[in-house]
Design a protein around this nucleic acid. Structure first.
Lengths: 292, 292
DNA sequence: CTGGGTTCATACCGGCTAGGTATCCGATCC
DNA sequence: GGATCGGATACCTAGCCGGTATGAACCCAG
């Protein structure tokens, strides 16, 4: 074989994609190399080689690091999806032998939400004749879809419009309006309804900020929080307000008031699973969920 | 670094996936090696190594070749999807620089169908102010979804329930009933409707068989055909009948009769595109399509 | 039962390439 | 203008990937 053709154009390896994603996320080859546990020069070379192979400049080199070109942005988006798919293939293959020994199914849901729905779902499924063990993974908001994509979970409870449902098969479970939770006795709590825009600009009651998937926080005036109970405590103390789906009333204690939001999007809870799933346990969970 | 850990568990390369898929498809390591342009021993080793890494036996070795285990079937399904995703990442990245020079969008549709819809769509899109060149790729039935998945196309016209739409964003364009096309003058052509089961068992008029994605044909009595005009000719000659969506009447000539099918599933034509598409041309085509 | 054919596995070897170290170049900032 | 930071280049080493030769297990024919 011609040495120049040993690696035909159009044959990107996952290692290269991992390198690329690391560099893109760090915007810095040196730091990315450190994160990858390797030296900077080979990483520089690998990126350059990938750029040559793709016939596209992926980064603009600046004195402070590197920034993505538009081609790079495409590769970041698509490459992440591709890496998730490869990881999913790997995990699900491993899982196949595991579940053959002892059948089980991994269900993931947002920590601290849908607990009532979840309980009913688990009960309903457990009543099925061929029910297997359900491993429940409660992960931080927004991670459920990722876990489903990369094979760490078999089924997930997701929420429209917050989660990205693309690529999944879904079945709708509940649709709820959103409400604004604020301190009991606050003047606004007397109102019969409020708009999202108004809710976001109540003097002295900023909406809290939630972390992104990578752990960073958006800019804004509100407090940075990751825990729902923390937030509710803060609301009780008169330091914040928060928009939540209607079902959140269930977990509420004293000291809080509720005002319906007139124009906030409805929150849909769905059960989602990867397409082409062959697992009877997943099918059973979905069946149980839709029967609720 | 410890030599034994240079390649951490959980780090499958696309090359390995390609090897695995080839072996799975050939059910024969030697033939797969030939197809891959390599010798058999390294391929054997690569598969064994992959099995070790995944901790799962992927093939049962038989004296006549190899057969997939259940873990192998999982990896075949998931691995194909992962490879398509990697190829998509690569192609779309290349495409980004190409379309920056000269904007264009690749639309794929089933050869020999939807021609009227297609014409209207192209006209409607061309009328948009920022329309770009549309590269139409007519591919054999069933290939459209694949092309969309691996990045060879940007948008596709697909048909429920024939195409697998999972993983795509879609917008429904038309819904049609199916009809049975048979030779004019045939006794059955006098009926006002017919069931799919009846249509499949008309004496002397077998339904033709269509090739699978890999080019092989399903078993059955009907003729093996890949071309719609061929089929219609055969129908005219009184040698076959065929079930088609209602819109196929448009392309029909003399010598053919049409009987509505009472229980065949409706055929939905949709325009589909990969989720997270950032292409304004794709958005424009979708907009134009939904306005039809 | 025995010999040949088929198919995958093992043994061994060579070259490519991924990764390491040392160093350079270019830009920025005081 | 020197110091610093960050990426690129040069060069070397070793591991791995792929090739050839051969073994081992099984099937089938006679």
């Amino acid at each position: 074989m011609n040495p120049g053709e040993r690696r035909s154009v159009g044959d990107v390896e996952t290692r290269e994609l991992r390198y690329f994603v690391a560099v893109a996320e760090e915007s810095h080859i040196g730091r990315a190399a450190e994160r990858l546990g390797m030296a900077q020069p080979p990483l520089s070379r690998a990126i350059a080689q990938l750029e040559r192979r793709l016939g596209a400049r992926l980064f603009d080199r600046t004195p402070r690091g590197v920034t993505l070109t538009s081609a790079g942005e495409t590769l970041l988006r698509e490459g992440r999806a591709a890496l998730a798919a490869v990881e999913a293939a790997e995990r699900r293959t491993r899982r196949t032998v595991e579940t053959a020994r002892r059948p089980s199914v991994v269900l993931t849901a947002k920590a601290g939400a849908s607990s009532e729905l979840m309980a009913k779902l688990l009960d309903a499924y457990a009543a099925e004749p061929d029910a297997v063990e359900v491993e429940v993974v409660l992960s931080p908001p927004g991670h459920q879809a990722l876990m489903l994509r990369d094979g760490r979970a078999d089924v997930a409870l997701l929420h429209r419009p917050f989660d990205d449902l693309s690529g999944f098969d879904v079945e709708t479970l509940t649709v709820e309006d959103q409400v604004l939770i604020l301190p009991a006795g606050h003047p606004v709590s007397a109102r019969s309804s409020i708009t999202a825009a108004e809710a976001a600009s109540i003097p002295g009651l900023p909406l809290p900020r939630w972390p992104h998937l990578d752990g960073s926080y958006p800019d804004g005036p509100g407090p940075e929080l990751r825990d729902l109970t923390q937030v509710l405590q803060l609301v009780r103390l008169g330091r914040a307000a928060i928009m939540l789906p209607d079902s959140a009333r269930a977990n509420m204690r004293e000291g809080l008031a509720v005002v319906p939001l007139s124009d906030a999007p409805q929150v849909t809870t769905v059960i989602a699973w990867p397409p082409h799933s062959t697992s009877p346990a997943v099918a059973g969970l979905v069946r149980a969920a839709t029967r609720l």
